[in-house]
Design a protein around this nucleic acid. Structure first.
Lengths: 172, 172
DNA sequence: CTGGATTACGAAAACAATTTTCATTTTCGA
DNA sequence: TCGAAAATGAAAATTGTTTTCGTAATCCAG
């Protein structure tokens, strides 16, 4: 379970605090109630890093409070999305994944189909080009999604593994 | 139900025939069997245009043969995808949509969140830029997906409707 | 042709992810 | 602190899709 930590292995407490405060704010504005369960869930969520599935989050949450179930986790995630603190993503494996906003407001994804790695990137020219195309098509973009599916290409990497597999199939 | 037709309203029969033949070929190569149901389904599918959901297709298919059910439609769509004659897409409304290959080999999508319109576009610079970014990140792209979500912007259009809604909410 | 193994069909059950229900508990402002 | 409003958790319901299983259709060898 990846933690939202610095390279030194420490969870970024100020980051977590900030998110907790922002969520408390949202809850208050909406006239909703602060509960132990929601606190546990969001605190747990923002200590995790990456693209978290509901099951992953629930497992982690249960360590703090085993009585919390799927329903509450789902409900809280919806609130997090509604509050704009979290984005929901789907990468085609049938699971929703949730991502706490990082410093980069918007970014796109590269998904390695060999090892499952998901990395993020952002490129202003790409964004500008999309805007230009939308303009040409008389279309107003609210949001977009760009996902590159493929393989890592570092030494002894996924792309190599893939090529090896293909070669074996060829030889057989 | 949009038909795969020319501007004059005629279904492109040669297109349908071509697809039927290609599917028959695939079925034969795989050692599978030709059946009335499959013929009905693919013939119906390729006469439709756009991004067809399973339910839409089944409804249309039932007009020709009411006894055909979901299972067979799903199974046939899987074969169509496997045969590379059709692509599966998901635009986040929880439904799989199927698209017969058009002349344009690859394309991206703009989805209007107001009226549901789905239009297609292709831009070589966008493709090239993606390749460049992948290169920089030591990543090999197998395929990608780009979807722009927003609103049509023509006169008396979806973007206007949206703004009107916002204005009303403001005024209220 | 035709038998018969193979494959496909269709209805219904199973599934997986997610949402809802409902009885109970908790929160929080008057 | 009372009580209305909201939240919880277990279980049931929903949704989209897949699988099962008994029956029917296909099609190749003979």
């Amino acid at each position: 379970m990846p933690l939202n930590e610095h390279d030194n292995g420490q969870v970024d407490e100020s980051f977590v605090k900030e998110k907790e405060a922002a969520f408390a704010d949202f809850i208050q504005r909406k006239g909703l109630k602060t509960t132990r369960q929601r606190n546990t869930i969001i605190s747990t969520f923002f200590r995790l890093r990456g693209h978290i599935s509901v099951e992953e989050l629930l497992n982690e949450v249960k360590k703090a409070n085993p009585r919390i179930g799927y329903a509450t986790v789902y409900r809280t995630l919806h609130l997090l999305v509604e509050s704009n603190l979290v984005e929901e993503r789907r990468f085609g494996d049938g699971l929703a994944r949730y991502e706490g906003h990082s410093d980069v407001e918007h970014h796109d994804h590269m998904i390695c189909l060999e090892c499952g790695m998901i990395s993020e990137f952002f490129n202003p020219r790409l964004e500008a080009l999309q805007e230009k195309l939308a303009e040409e098509n008389n279309f107003e973009i609210y949001r977009h999604r760009l996902e590159l599916y493929g393989a890592c290409k570092d030494t002894e990497s996924c792309a190599q593994r893939k090529n090896k597999k293909a070669a074996e199939a060829q030889g057989a």
